[in-house]
């Protein structure tokens, strides 16, 4: 079985890289000062993503502190996989089981937003569609043949992907002569919502925006801190600079 999956994956590599090149990502507005959005995002992340994925560089109490959630509330609402608030955020599912069930261990997501970028995550969470040929029954246009099943299908509903055929014209040299080759390629066109979910598309957009916002926070919790502290550092340096200019002028008076 493993061999079959591996050969499938290897065979798909060129397609994956090709598809990623022409990818158009939807833009998501990130606002780390929107604490309510971060809190909603944290709830989605802990309830759904953290079932299988780790976010092991972040600790629960740090998250609570940064997002304005009291330790009491964190313990009550967000602590599922452990009972220690100082613990790293680890998946509820053991990695070995996950690997057995999905073929690959779900990756740690702490740094996903820094690696992929927020637009990628936002678009990815909008791009699952039903694919009976795939292993999990789901496929994704942003990450083709991804092992992850669509966890939030209850919210968004079931999408079907519509493809269209495109003529690819390529100019190649054959025996010193320029030859034009025309091939057909199936490219993704758009999605159709086959079965609506519990959320309207608008509600779902907002939920995923909150989730993405939280993942951007999670990728760099220090960002909240550095943007605040930076102002004081720059004010200090401005004062230093004024004194330095005055000192220099005073000394250089006698240089002609």
């Amino acid at each position: 079985m493993n061999k079959i999956i591996l050969s499938l994956l290897l065979g798909l590599l060129p397609i994956v890289s090709h598809a990623e090149q022409g990818l158009k990502l939807d833009h998501v507005r990130i606002d780390l000062s929107d604490q309510a959005s971060l809190q909603r995002g944290a709830r989605i992340f802990v309830n759904y993503c953290l079932s299988c994925h780790n976010a092991a560089y972040l600790r629960y109490n740090r998250m609570g502190h940064d997002l304005g959630i009291s330790n009491q509330l964190v313990k009550q609402d967000l602590l599922f996989a452990t009972n220690k608030i100082g613990d790293r955020m680890r998946a509820a599912m053991p990695a070995a089981d996950a690997k057995k069930w999905f073929g690959v261990a779900p990756p740690d997501l702490t740094l996903e937003a820094r690696y992929r970028g927020p637009d990628w995550i936002y678009t990815y969470m909008h791009s699952f569609y039903r694919d009976p040929k795939s292993f999990s029954g789901w496929n994704n246009t942003v990450f083709p043949h991804v092992a992850m099943p669509f966890v939030l299908y209850g919210w968004q509903g079931e999408q079907r992907a519509v493809f269209r055929n495109v003529k690819l014209v390529s100019h190649v040299m054959e025996n010193g002569k320029a030859v034009t080759e025309v091939t057909e390629e199936r490219v993704f066109s758009h999605f159709v919502l086959a079965k609506p979910g519990t959320m309207t598309p608008k509600q779902y957009d907002l939920a995923i925006r909150d989730l993405t916002n939280f993942m951007v926070y999670m990728g760099e919790p220090a960002k909240l801190e550095r943007i605040r502290i930076g102002v004081y550092v720059l004010i200090f340096l401005a004062v230093f600079l004024v004194l330095a200019i005055l000192l220099k002028k005073e000394y250089w008076k006698d240089v002609h």
């Binding site: 550095r226 943007i227 502290i229 930076g230 550092v233 720059l234 340096l237 401005a238 230093f240 600079l241």
Partner: peptide, 10 residues
Amino acid sequence: LTVFAAIIFY
């Protein structure tokens, strides 16, 4: 250092 700090923090 002002340039350096602006880069580090922002």
